[in-house]
Nucleic acid binder design. Structure first.
Length: 456
RNA sequence: GGCGACGUGGCCGAGUGGUUUAGGCAACGGCCUGCAAAGCCGUGUACAUGAGUUCGAUUCUCAUCGUCGCCUCCA
């Protein structure tokens, strides 16, 4: 059974399932106000790999991942560009899914939008006020963090300790707040709603929900109390996840059973890439310039909790590694199709993945299995089919789609035949010319003793 | 100031108290090939520094230096 590091207990522990055979996961999705960056890509790919693995083990996975389609940054951009806010959110969301499809992210089972849950958020905030966990000020409704017993569980720091330093930062809504860490649940509108600056009615005044409420309402609505796993990037640990949890606790509800956080994407100097620093390379560029699988490959080779560097060298290395896997996959597609995967290899794969999603070890196993299968194939050993089948299983569980034997058009086939004829006739000048011609047409040409094989 | 992570061979990146100490990329040698490609075989004596614990530490402890993250923008 899968063991995962749990941020709440700071230990690797078994992912306990609320219902046998079923896993319920909530993943904090994007705020749709700009193109997805590399960090978004890492988070979705890490959880995509997790999900595929869980499914491979036979579990029924329900993955809820929200789209935040109302937020300050969306409004700021709408105002700045004098556009309707929905214009921005719809376009950005479309771009988001396009990018996610390109990296082969398996779509979540549910993708709720914040704007679909405004009524529920208003209702929840009402309950928090009624139970005196929240209060109304001049500019909004705030959550009282001191009213929540174990606030700071995910931050692993008491509220007082957090206050004691780092005091340079601007405290949002400071004037009316009872405690600096109190966070906004509902922001009052400063004027009438416009095309760019929307607001919704509430018993306390027109406005819009704060940052941390949607995930509580949606996760509890779609997954129910005590769902299995809550995921997201390290940066969401505090305050976002802490604040989600605070609301649930204040409501008297059991929240996530296990908290998983992935590490950052860092730049060449080891610094976190984030939007506010402006040093982001965007995911769209990466998948346009390189094989979209390369990013997944790089992530597989490092642990999900470690920071990962995305550099030219890294991506190039991954592209080369993929080329080897593609060559292998094309070579063994037919062989593997009819064979039972090697049980020992798959057992090792499970062992590695169950240990806090040890994809570096599992990836090493994949390469090792490919090497063994190739060697067995060269030696004409019967072991090759089972090994190849196991390698294919691992790759597909990783979400890596490898090359399959290509459809070869008549023209290419004729050239390949001519190439073989020339080689048979020892007319190597012609053979070389034909090979170059095929390569120019985009084929990867492997001329072997048994004849020429082509793939794209 | 508080809390936390990390410093591994040319690069990336796992891991471990000691015998055969991942994997990828690059490099070099070999096999195969008409030559290549693909593939296979082999080579590299790495673990920031200092001290300590230990029969033995890259792995544990402490200190030092360095890098980075969180402490209400952020995946």
């Amino acid at each position: 059974m899968l063991h995962l590091y749990d941020t709440a207990t700071r230990s690797v522990r078994e992912l306990a399932l609320r219902e046998p055979g079923k896993v319920s996961i909530y993943l904090c999705g994007p705020t749709v106000y700009g193109p997805p960056h590399l960090g978004h890509g890492r988070a979705t790919l890490v959880y995509d790999i997790l999900r595929r693995y869980l499914e491979w083990t036979g579990l029924d996975v329900r993955l809820v991942s929200n789209i935040t389609d109302i937020e300050d940054k969306i409004i700021e951009r709408a105002l700045r560009e004098d556009r309707p806010w929905q214009d921005i959110t719809t376009k950005c969301e479309a771009v988001w899914w396009e990018a996610m499809d390109a990296v082969n992210f398996e779509r979540p089972t549910d993708t709720p939008h914040a704007t679909e849950y405004v009524d529920e958020m208003v209702e929840m905030i009402g309950e928090l006020i009624a139970s005196e966990h929240a209060y109304v000020t001049d500019d909004g409704v705030y959550m009282s963090v001191e009213s929540v017993d174990d606030y700071g569980l995910l931050a692993h720091q008491s509220v007082d300790d957090m206050r004691s330093g780092g005091g340079d930062r601007e405290v949002v809504g400071a004037a009316g707040k009872r405690h600096p860490a109190d966070f906004v649940l509902w922001k009052f509108a400063t004027g009438p709603a416009t095309e760019s600056d929307p607001s919704w009615p509430s018993p306390w005044g027109a406005g819009r929900p704060g940052w941390h409420s949607e995930c509580v309402v949606m996760s509890l609505d779609l997954l129910g109390e005590g769902f299995d796993l809550h995921c997201g990037g390290q940066d969401l640990r505090f305050p976002h996840h802490e604040n989600e949890r605070a609301q649930a606790v204040a409501l008297g509800k059991t929240f996530a059973n296990h908290w998983m956080h992935n590490g950052f994407v860092v730049d060449a100097e080891g610094e976190k890439m984030s939007k506010s620093l402006g040093n982001v390379s965007n995911l769209l560029d990466l998948i346009e310039l390189y094989d979209p699988r390369a990013y997944r490959m790089v992530l597989l080779q490092s642990h999900y909790r470690s920071p990962v560097k995305i550099t030219q060298d890294n991506i190039d290395g991954a592209v080369k590694a993929l080329a080897g896997l593609d060559a292998f996959a094309a070579r063994t597609a037919d062989l593997a199709a009819g064979a039972a995967p090697d049980a020992g290899v798959l057992a090792d794969f499970g062992l590695a993945m169950d240990d806090d999603l040890d994809t570096p070890k599992a990836t090493a196993l994949l390469f090792d299995t490919v090497r063994r299968a190739n060697a067995a194939l060269d030696a004409g050993s019967g072991e090759s089919a089972r090994l190849a089948a196991a390698a294919h299983v691992i790759a597909s569980t990783f979400g890596l789609e490898l090359a399959v034997a290509s459809e070869i058009d008549g023209e290419a086939l004729a050239l390949a035949q001519a190439l073989d004829d020339a080689r048979t006739a020892k007319d190597f000048a012609t053979a070389d010319a034909l090979r170059v011609e095929l390569q120019a047409a985009g084929w990867t040409v492997e001329t072997t003793r048994d004849g020429t094989s082509l793939r794209r």
